[in-house]
Design a protein around this nucleic acid. Structure first.
Lengths: 343, 343
DNA sequence: CTGAAAGCGCTAACAA
DNA sequence: TTGTTAGCGCTTTCAG
């Protein structure tokens, strides 16, 4: 790290301005108890010297910290990139900086990253990756985060986690139900579901939504093939191949996120299968490019950027006795990738 | 920030282990001068107490910060998200954490973010956003970064910046030349260029490549309309409209990044213009979705993830007397959005 | 091999 | 209104 020899310190500013470091500190922090004239002078001197307070010293001394942590599965995934964008903007607005870590969809890595963030004494931690259906997988993370909160740390999660913290809850079940209902309304009955790992609550919840919509039409989940693969483009790609091999008569494919849906469309196109003429395709999330695919993708919009904003805003609020919970909205976006079931 | 009362400190570990804090520190840091037996015991006690060193105290005392900074224009842009992914992975591999800031394509904001990162005493700073053609716009940033480097900080930039630092240089000019040559080879002569803000070096360099390729065919930049709009999907969208209004006879459109190209394709599709039948479209970057658009996008691949990896790796190496420079490769990826010029 | 003690730069009582 | 001073938790000489 920088051998801070030579980086101007508060003491240097104080000396140059001819005041004590206490006065300098107050002036720079804009705190009470300094004559405006002196304060202005100090600020000017500091500016002239290019003084920037050492965040570590400030934090250690009990001043406000200034960083928050964000854990995503993978920032290259547009879903998380959009959430991150929201988090970063809210943070910047409040003079905070964001540390981003990858959990790589692995609970052990997630735990490790949580520990890292805690070591950095971030003011708050936002866990944006999906939760896990098995509580044991997050038990240790929960213990660590609970301890963190007991010492004054703030935590917010996005999604359904087995973590004791405030939460932003995407309408996953409603989203799953919405696409399914849409397809059913179009007359589809032979529907295939491409799902991510069953261990993710996001996947489980969306499937629950699918089931609910099916039941409203007198069907059950047993009537539709559900394939669990990676929650990525490749998962959608490979899954389509397998699903169609086993069920060549499917007329619609639901991908439980847009990344998978993109893989589905790609696979279908390379096979020359008309969409939606022969098979309709729908996703969930409404990532930015969904509208630009061809055919444009029917999906359910989840407000990712806003979810990031909400999560950090929530985390930064004074804690309440009870955990807060905030549901997102969702909106079915019908585009060109879905159409009536072929006769 | 966490009222660290109750978060175990080194002193607590030392007390519990029955040693001095100096010994505890050495043991935990794996430093010389402690009997292996004692060291092991201390580590065990620390683990048992869930002890995690306070990064701020450690940094203040002269240890390494273990965080690096990354400045991108906007993380929601896939180009930067992919770079960030590379940076984060390399960082994680070395036990470092990454602070990400948005510069929003504004030099003043960039300067502010650089200051912020320096205040955080990050070990290194990676500036991933494009540079500016006007040196004055980055003069202050350069001064600040130079001072940072003089105090031991490390800096690497991606792109052509007026900043004194190691640099990863995307083959922007070659990329611009490659798409242009490709289109010319297909017989196109009435080519329109959709460019981002002229003030960005990325844009300037890619245009220079376009010019070079044109000249190789006995043409010049004056023979093709160049429109400067936003370096985003919307820029491509709006730009297409304007360019076609003024030059209805164009047979090919070069967008200087894929985000714009996506906007171009979208606009063309909504107008019912056949691509590439009537107009060919090409981009630059090869973001992940380029292959999944319809028609799939002809573009030039720049290894974004790898660029992120290279930049941080470079920044983390011991500094050399001369600035390092590393060029990326590039590869023309011909897909379905380009075809022979209509007769 | 181990411990005591002096800071790192800043904030926040407490004095003046 | 301003200055003095005691830490914040850790690393690192310097003694023992």
């Amino acid at each position: 790290m920088p051998k801070s020899r030579s980086a101007p310190r508060l003491a240097d500013v104080a000396a140059r301005a001819g005041v004590s470091i206490a006065t300098a500190s107050r002036s720079l922090a804009g705190r009470e108890g300094v004559s405006e004239a002196v304060a202005a002078h100090v600020r000017e001197v500091a500016l002239g010297m290019g003084y920037v307070a050492n965040v570590h010293a400030r934090t250690l001394a009990g001043g406000a910290t200034s960083t928050v942590g964000l854990i995503v599965h993978e920032i290259g995934d547009p879903y998380f990139a959009e959430i991150a964008s929201g988090v970063i903007d809210v943070a910047a607005q409040r003079g905070l900086t964001v540390q981003i870590c990858h959990s790589a969809r692995d609970p052990r890595t997630e735990l490790h990253q949580i520990r890292t963030l805690i070591a950095h004494r971030t003011d708050a931690i936002v866990v944006a990756g999906s939760g896990y259906t098995e509580p044991e997988l997050q038990a240790e993370s929960n213990a660590v985060l609970t301890a963190f909160q007991e010492t004054g740390g703030r935590v917010a999660v996005i999604g359904r986690h087995h973590l004791t913290a405030d939460a932003v809850r995407p309408d996953n079940e409603a989203a799953g139900a919405a696409v399914t209902a849409h397809l059913l309304a179009l007359g589809h009955r032979r529907i295939g579901v491409l799902a991510g790992p069953a261990v993710l609550t996001t996947v489980a919840d969306r499937i629950a939504g699918v089931a609910a919509a099916l039941e409203a039409h007198g069907m059950t989940l047993d009537d539709v093939p559900v394939l669990h693969t990676d929650f990525t483009r490749n998962g959608g790609h490979a899954g389509t191949e397998q699903l169609l091999a086993e069920h060549p008569d499917l007329t619609a494919l639901i991908a439980l996120n847009d990344a998978m849906a993109i893989g589905v469309l790609s696979e279908l196109r390379s096979r020359g299968v008309p969409v939606p003429g022969r098979i309709s395709v729908a996703g969930v999330d409404d990532v930015a490019v969904a509208a630009d695919l061809a055919p444009s993708l029917t999906t359910v919009r989840l407000p990712m950027t806003e979810m990031g904003e909400m999560a950090l805003t929530m985390a930064l609020k004074p804690p309440t006795a009870r955990r807060r919970r905030k549901n997102t909205g969702h909106e079915l976006i019908v585009r060109d990738s879905t159409g009536p079931a072929p006769a």
